[in-house]
């Protein structure tokens, strides 16, 4: 019993908020690429924010629910359908055993997140349910989902279910949802293109002024070989000659590395713990979901920010999540 995978999609993995605390042993963090959508999806079904969700990439899966569940889909709009009808996003949806949920290709964004009330019943590995594809541990059997897999679900407590069922109209239908949703303009993907905010990196000073100016003036294209490890950008090459000889050191998600070829790479959730290329800049934490929602072929620009702006943006995001939390608490009373 659980969710049967009738079609796996391009890359569908379980992810949570990551495997922290073990980088000194070389253990990468992994975790949801778009943390905001992941947390929101969990909030909407009453889960803790670090519960694992399904991260669905670029081309969606077909899921067959073998038991009743409350789900929420946030992130990229991949035109999800439930038994042939549009599945509304950004809100809880009660689904009955037997329904099929189908994802298409993204209309906006790159990654969708599906949360299930009470969570997926897979063991935590080193404190996390995130899938580490490289290394093959965590998540569901340490790998992306395949056709025929059955993802086991934890059973929600009865009191929990009752609250949600009371919230949702038309209990007899195959699926039901409330007429409200989380406000869409608060979501991480860019309705209007905004530059990614960066802070000077560890080797910012090693790059000539002209190169730093170029980084914020130029437009970069997201390469087709971009993945959960890193976003490979193409655009005007950055000359890193003077800073080639750096020793490998601990890297951070969002680091903009400049390899000898001069085409920058933004390190993402699956990046290895250490790296040896100079870091010209670092994308601020709150903008990482924006990167995660950029699909190969899309373009981006960088904009220099300050620590103050970064902190203010982090606080603003927490306030938005808190508003959702409070609104849900009122509706569930």
């Amino acid at each position: 019993m659980g969710i049967q995978i009738e079609h796996p999609g391009l890359l569908t993995t379980l992810q949570d908020l990551g495997r922290t605390g073990l980088q000194h042993l070389g253990v990468p963090v992994n975790g949801a690429m778009d943390e905001t959508s992941h947390r929101m999806a969990n909030l909407l079904v009453g889960n803790a924010e670090d519960e694992a969700t399904l991260e669905i990439t670029l081309s969606g899966p077909r899921l067959h629910f073998q038991e009743d569940a409350v789900i929420a889909v946030c992130g990229a709009n991949m035109a999800p359908m439930i038994d042939g009808e549009p599945l509304p996003m950004w809100r809880p949806v009660r689904v009955r055993a037997g329904v099929r949920v189908l994802f298409g290709r993204p209309q906006i964004g790159c990654r969708a997140y599906l949360a299930v009330a009470a969570g997926f019943d897979v063991p935590a590995v080193m404190g996390s349910r995130s899938t580490a594809v490289r290394g093959a541990y965590g998540g569901f059997n340490g790998r992306a989902l395949r056709k025929g897999d059955v993802l086991p679900l934890r059973s929600p407590e009865e009191a929990h279910t009752a609250r949600w069922v009371g919230l949702l109209a038309h209990k007899q239908n195959r699926f039901a949802f409330p007429n409200w949703s989380v406000s869409r303009h608060k979501m991480p993907y860019r309705v209007t293109p905004q530059p990614l905010r960066i802070l000077p990196g560890r080797h910012w000073q090693n790059f000539p002024v002209a190169m730093r100016e170029q980084l914020v003036a130029a437009e970069y294209r997201v390469g087709n070989d971009s993945d959960r490890m890193g976003y490979r950008l193409s655009g005007p090459a950055l000359d890193a000659r003077r800073s080639h000889d750096v020793l490998s050191e601990g890297m951070v998600t969002g680091a903009v590395q400049v390899p000898p070829g001069g085409q920058p790479i933004i390190l993402m959730a699956d990046h290895q713990t250490t790296g040896g290329y100079p870091v010209i800049a670092v994308v601020i934490g709150v903008d990482l979901p924006v990167v995660a929602q950029l699909a190969p072929g899309e373009t981006l620009r960088f904009k220099l920010a300050t620590q103050e702006e970064s902190y203010a943006a982090a606080i603003a995001r927490e306030q938005q999540l808190e508003l959702v939390r409070q609104a849900l608490a009122v509706r569930l009373r």
């Binding site: 922290t20 605390g21 073990l22 980088q23 000194h24 963090v29 020793l247 490998s248 050191e249 601990g250 890297m251 951070v252 713990t273 250490t274």
Partner: peptide, 10 residues
């Protein structure tokens, strides 16, 4: 997290 490397600690 603490990530010691060759000559630097993150």
């Amino acid at each position: 997290d603490v990530a010691p490397a060759f000559a630097a600690l993150t």
